[in-house]
């Protein structure tokens, strides 16, 4: 956030014409990537706090669901960090994680519908992320498109 102060007043004050994103090569976490960083950050916090609370307070009620929530939190956290760090290595790692995330949402989504008894409590990925406005299923697709574009 070091660059934030100098550009804080108004967009037109920038002499180098910030309106053209092509002027400077945009990183993974800039431009549309900034929006992805926010959404992945939100889901990291949501999944992590949910799973930590549930693992501590009510582990025995639905251990499978809570462990899967913790796994999804780790995936979200890794992608958030990769987007912020940028670079080719981070881009590839984030792509792998987005693919994992997509597979996870589809698998858990199908699993929760096929065998609800295995999941007495919800996870972030239950019913394809229905409890989270289906964002969990759109997010990895958007992430993969964004990361692919950077070749």
């Amino acid at each position: 956030m070091a660059e934030s102060t100098e550009s804080s007043r108004s967009a037109s004050a920038r002499p180098d014409g910030t309106s053209g994103p092509a002027a400077r090569r945009t990183g993974l976490g800039q431009g549309p990537g900034r929006l992805l960083v926010l959404l992945y950050g939100v889901f990291t916090v949501a999944a992590a706090s949910r799973s930590i609370y549930q693992l501590i307070a009510q582990y025995h009620e639905a251990p499978l669901a809570y462990i899967l929530s913790a796994v999804s939190a780790a995936v979200y956290a890794f992608i958030t960090v990769s987007l912020v760090r940028g670079g080719e290595g981070a881009r590839r790692a984030a792509m792998v994680c987005c693919a994992l995330e997509l597979i996870g949402v589809l698998t858990i989504g199908t699993w929760t519908l096929a065998d609800p008894s295995a999941f007495p409590d919800q996870t972030v990925w239950s019913d394809y992320g229905m409890g989270y406005l289906f964002i969990p299923i759109f997010l990895p697709v958007t992430g993969l498109l964004w990361l692919r574009r950077k070749d």
Binding site: M1, E3, T5, S8, A11, R14, G31, P32, G33, R34
Partner: peptide, 10 residues
Amino acid sequence: FMSLAERTRW
């Protein structure tokens, strides 16, 4: 803060 760092529509 994120929108301070990102002076575009995004």
